[in-house]
Design a protein around this nucleic acid. Structure first.
Lengths: 221, 221
DNA sequence: TAGATTGTTAATCGATTAACAATC
DNA sequence: TAGATTGTTAATCGATTAACAATC
C-alpha cells in the first residue's frame, strides 16, 4: 500500500518526508561543530519557514528552549528515534542484479543500524555465489526465510514481471514493509503494508516536465 | 533549485508528479488492448478519485468526450507531450561508478527518446575505458562539453564530496536540469535550474518511520 | 531584567473533492 | 431521446504560515 494511502497517520506524510532532511542537516551541523541553533537560522539554511520547523519538531518531542533555540544532539536523536533508527530492523534483498548490488553496497552506509539478513535471486547462475558477503539464495525459499526470521523490510529489485509474484510471497509470509525499485505498482492486499516506491522513470520524467515547460514558455505555439 | 521551490508553476507539482503514473497506467491499458476508459474506471484502478483524474487531465488538453470517457491513444500522447518526451533532450552522466553504470543501463529503457551524449568521471583508471558504448571522459572537460553541445540534463552520480563542485561547473556551463543521486542537497545559485533529488537514504528512512510508528502503536510506553 | 525564541493556536493558502450544467 | 460522463466552478479539507503568550 502506497504510503499516501495509509490510514492512521498521527503525523502527516509531508512532515515524515521532511524528517530525513532534518537528520542530514543536523548531522552536517554536528560535523561543523555547531551544537545549538534557532528555528530562524535552521530555516535560513534549509529554505523552510521557522514556523514549519517548530511545527515539525514539536512532533518529535520538545527539544527547544525559549530564548535559546534547539540543542542539536538531543534533537538529532529525537528525529532518529522517530525514524526508527534505534530499532534494529532486519531486511532482505530480492534481486541480485546490478541494481540490487548497488543497493547492497549502499545499504551499509544508507541504513546504519539496520541488518541485511539475506540476498535472493531466481537466476540459477547466481544462486550459491557470494555477493557483498552474502550467499545468494533461491527465491523459492524466500517466504520460509522471511517467516522464520521475522524479517521486517524487503528491498525489491527484481524485473517488473516478477514484482507482483514476489510481493505476494512476501506479504503472505509476514513482511512488514517493502522498498520497491521495480518501476511498477505492487498490490499488498488487505494488510496495510507500507510500500515506498523509488520509480526512477517517474522521477526522470518529472524533471523532464520542467524542461518542456521552460521551452513552452519560451516559444508558445 | 529543488522542484518544490521553483516559481511560475502553471501546474502544481502534485499534478506534475502524477503525470508519469498516468503514463504508466495508460501504457498498461494499451498493452491490455483497452482503447478507452472513463475517469471512474481509471480512478478505481489507480486509487484516485474521478474528480482528480478529470482535473489532472484538463491540464494536458481536452481529450475526454462526454458520455463516453477518454480515448486512450491521444490522451497518452498528450501526457507524454506534457512531460517533454517528444523533445529530444540530451543528457550526460557524471560518475561512472557502480550506481552510474546502473543508471546508464536503465537510461535507455527509462528515458526512451532522450540522448545520452557522454560519460564523465574523475578516476584516471576509468578515463578512456568504454562503459555502455561510451568512452569515459575526464570531468575536467565537463564544462566545455556541456557548453559546446548544449546539453540539457546532467545525471549526477558522484560521491557526496564532489557533488557541489561538479554542480557548480554544470550551472556555469549552462546546464538546464540536474538529476541528483548524491544524497546531498546541491545549490544552483541565482538561475532557476530544476534539481530532482533521488535520495535513497531519505526514502529508506521514510519507510522505516512507518515500521517504528506501527511498533509505537503496539507498545506505547 | 530585557531580549530572544519556543510551542501552539488562529489565519491563510492551496489542493482535493463534490456538484452540476453542458453535451456526446 | 435518455443515459453517461466530461470540464469546470464551488465547497471542503488539509497543510503551511503568522501571531503571540509563555518563558528561558
Amino acid at each position: 500500500m502506497r504510503l499516501g494511502q495509509l490510514q492512521s497517520m498521527d503525523v502527516s506524510l509531508h512532515v515524515i518526508r521532511r524528517l530525513p532532511r532534518y537528520l542530514r542537516e543536523l548531522d552536517d551541523l554536528m560535523s561543523e561543530g555547531v551544537r545549538h541553533i534557532s528555528s530562524i537560522e535552521l530555516g535560513r539554511r534549509m529554505g523552510f519557514t521557522p514556523s514549519q520547523i517548530r511545527q515539525d519538531f514539536s512532533y518529535c518531542g520538545a527539544f527547544g528552549v525559549q530564548g535559546y533555540g534547539y540543542s542539536i544532539p538531543p534533537l538529532r536523536e529525537g528525529v532518529a528515534k522517530m525514524l526508527g533508527m534505534d530499532r534494529d530492523y532486519s531486511a532482505v534483498l530480492i534481486g541480485a542484479g546490478k541494481l540490487g548490488r548497488v543497493l547492497l553496497e549502499h545499504f551499509s552506509e544508507v541504513a546504519k543500524g539496520y541488518h541485511l539478513r539475506a540476498v535472493f535471486d531466481s537466476d540459477c547462475a547466481l544462486i550459491g555465489s557470494k555477493i557483498g558477503g552474502h550467499a545468494v539464495r533461491s527465491v523459492s525459499g524466500l517466504g520460509a526465510f522471511v517467516e522464520k526470521n521475522k524479517i521486517d523490510i524487503a528491498i525489491l529489485a527484481v524485473p517488473k514481471e516478477q514484482a507482483q509474484p514476489v510481493a505476494d510471497a512476501l506479504t503472505e509470509s509476514g513482511i512488514r514493509a517493502i522498498w520497491n525499485f521495480t518501476n511498477t505498482e505492487i498490490e499488498t492486499g488487505e494488510k496495510e503494508i507500507p510500500v515506498e516506491d523509488v520509480h526512477f522513470s517517474d522521477s526522470f520524467l518529472t524533471l523532464s516536465y520542467f524542461l518542456a515547460q521552460a521551452d513552452r514558455e519560451k516559444s508558445p505555439k
